[in-house]
Design a protein around this nucleic acid. Structure first.
Lengths: 357, 357
DNA sequence: GTTAGCACTCTTTTTCTTTGAGTGCTAATT
DNA sequence: AATTAGCACTCAAAGAAAAAGAGTGCTAAC
């Protein structure tokens, strides 16, 4: 992998020398701040650029040919293309190391008193949304790392029952069921026992309809009365999976007028599916996705996501969705720091709390 | 009340005669459809208007003086003012009676199989949002009409407990608590008993911090260990109250470009407080609110809400939020029909299901 | 290889004109 | 007395023309 990158770099080194890289970085830096096309003069006036506008124009023409920059029209400055941004993020920008104050700020945002890992991630998401003025996206760790610890049914009224499912990560979902008949104590006890015997320790990720059907089939005489409850159990597992991914702070996107609100509305419609698909793909620890990459449908926007790990395995994801012209050099360190801290915290927690899982 | 209305009507009858009322209605009808200022010529060409444009111009000038119409600029047609809309809705429009098909359609949208009244209202809200392409607002009935039937604590891990609160309307909220110490069986039993004795039958609307504090104080030796759980109980009651009001389908508002998306974003920020304040006010069975009436901050938009009743008392609310130029003549009957049906259904349900509450 | 100079392009802004919908008023009509 | 035709007037919207200006690419000089 590294070798490939080196090769490629050497290959184009004549075309993309150090100065051109510097110019490209300067163009993108400026564009991120102003949102306006950047001209050769503006670049030439920067302190660490020692060449004339004419030279910069020549270089910019090359950068355009290479596909890193483009012109909205002939007599305008340049704006970055998707590939331009990609190169910028991968190689050109200099990520600002976090100051101690910033670290402190981020630490303060993390609500460590919260009882579940998902809630911890949630608090990070909220903080990130406020700090970056972007929407945030979260993939909770629970479905991957938690198993069912308890399934219970509680009568609440005539033929009304509440079905509960609790997982080892301390999450809980419930569903109100109206049955055709009232259950006897004996039936309810059987149900509890049957669930404990067959579902305890099963991951909610694995609890398929098939498993439920088998359980129903093996239930003997209880089948008729209890089958609806088992259907409810199935729905509860689904509820866990459905809430795995959360997009929030969408209102931040509405404020930006470089993103069409129609596209945002459309994205919000089916955000969960869209984002789910994206996060399912395996990727490195940090990924930046642009525009319509892999079905991500908002033009002129980008998504930065980073993995949260537990026991060395990928556990969850945290990131932001915002306009293309994000302050990547600041936001990427933020996200990396937050996911890093969360990774630490949930490992600590394991030692501290979850021994008995 | 009726007398007042008659008096007022007679008073202005010279200024606002039948023809002017007809013209005002026609202007608003047209404006609702086209969104464009309406001129005298357009009105004159309507089949049931028998007078010339000149006459209509004179009448329109009067209607403008009375504050029912206004001109965006001198040489434009007229558009309705808030008072114009108000008069239109109160007296002028002819609400279209629902056809049997429409009734059928609305009935089909109501998911009567749903186990709680709140879920029934929710299904109506969803349908309404789709039919009207507006945002919908719902005030659930549960906090007013339901009492606590069960408070339970379930251990889920080391020092981790799930606290449950179930109400007579079949709703449930839960909260994960991390305690400083593990509870003994005896402590948990005491807690269940204590909750059953003191909170069963209490309305979640009434469950104040004060009550909880008194309960904590009267708990004797259990105070130290169980106080955090009681605090959790308090939060659960709050969770019930907080979810009382729901605004959904906001994306429908984004699509309309006659409403500023900045204002929508701002409204979404604190929608619950805003709407809560509005619905708290006592009003007739159906209320229409415009623009910034009573703190409702979206310019150029209106909110139509109607009450849902149970046992003759106001129980909940259902309505829509949309642009000013709504098809009131269609939507108001929709809302009235839906709230009427829900009122019927939840009374039926009482006979059928909730005898034991 | 770099740069100054310059002609050229194309958007943006401004100004001016035209068009047309719609009004208010007056005088004629019913 | 109410209604209507006629007409001058207003003003936004659309269009046309002109000016400004930012930025480029190319050529020739350094």
């Amino acid at each position: 992998m590294t070798v490939q990158v080196l090769n490629r770099r050497r290959e184009v080194s004549s075309l993309l020398d150090e100065r051109k890289r510097k110019i490209l970085a300067a163009v993108i830096d400026s564009y991120i701040v102003t949102g306006e096309p950047v001209g050769s003069k503006a670049i030439a006036s920067l302190p660490d650029i020692k060449v004339s506008p004419a030279t910069i124009r020549n270089d910019m023409a090359v950068l355009e040919q290479l596909g890193y920059l483009e012109q909205p029209h002939t007599s305008a400055g340049r704006i970055p293309t998707y590939s331009g941004y990609r190169l910028y993020i991968d190689e050109l920008m200099n990520a600002k190391a976090l100051s101690d104050e910033e670290k402190q700020l981020l630490d303060d945002c993390l609500d460590v008193d919260v009882p579940t890992a998902d809630a911890l991630i949630e608090s990070a998401s909220k903080a990130l949304s406020e700090l970056t003025h972007c929407a945030t996206v979260v993939k909770n760790i629970s479905p991957k790392f938690s198993v069912i610890t308890k399934v219970e049914v509680i009568p609440t009224g005539k033929r009304m029952y509440v079905l509960l499912m609790i997982t080892s990560s301390g999450n809980i979902r419930n569903k109100v069921c109206r049955l055709e008949f009232d259950l006897t104590n004996e039936q309810m006890e059987f149900f509890s026992r049957y669930m404990a015997e067959n579902l305890q320790g099963v991951s909610v990720d694995e609890l398929s309809e098939e498993i439920i059907e088998n359980l129903v089939a093996a239930m003997g005489t209880y089948m008729v009365t209890l089958a609806p409850l088992l259907k409810g159990v199935c729905e509860l597992a689904e509820a866990f999976r459905d809430t795995e991914i959360k997009v929030s702070g969408e209102k931040n996107l509405l404020a930006r007028q470089d993103i069409s609100s129609a596209q945002i509305a459309q994205f919000l419609e089916n955000k969960n599916e869209v984002v789910k698909n994206m996060l399912d793909d395996s990727f490195g620890d940090l990924q930046v996705v642009f525009g319509e990459d892999g079905g991500f449908v908002i033009e002129n926007s980008s998504m930065i996501v980073s993995k949260i790990k537990k026991d060395g395995r990928t556990a969850g994801t945290l990131g932001v969705i915002g306009p293309m012209r994000l302050d990547y050099a600041k936001i990427i360190p933020y996200i990396e720091y937050l996911t890093g801290r969360i990774t630490e915290l949930i490992s600590d927690e394991e030692d501290d709390e979850d021994k008995d899982i």
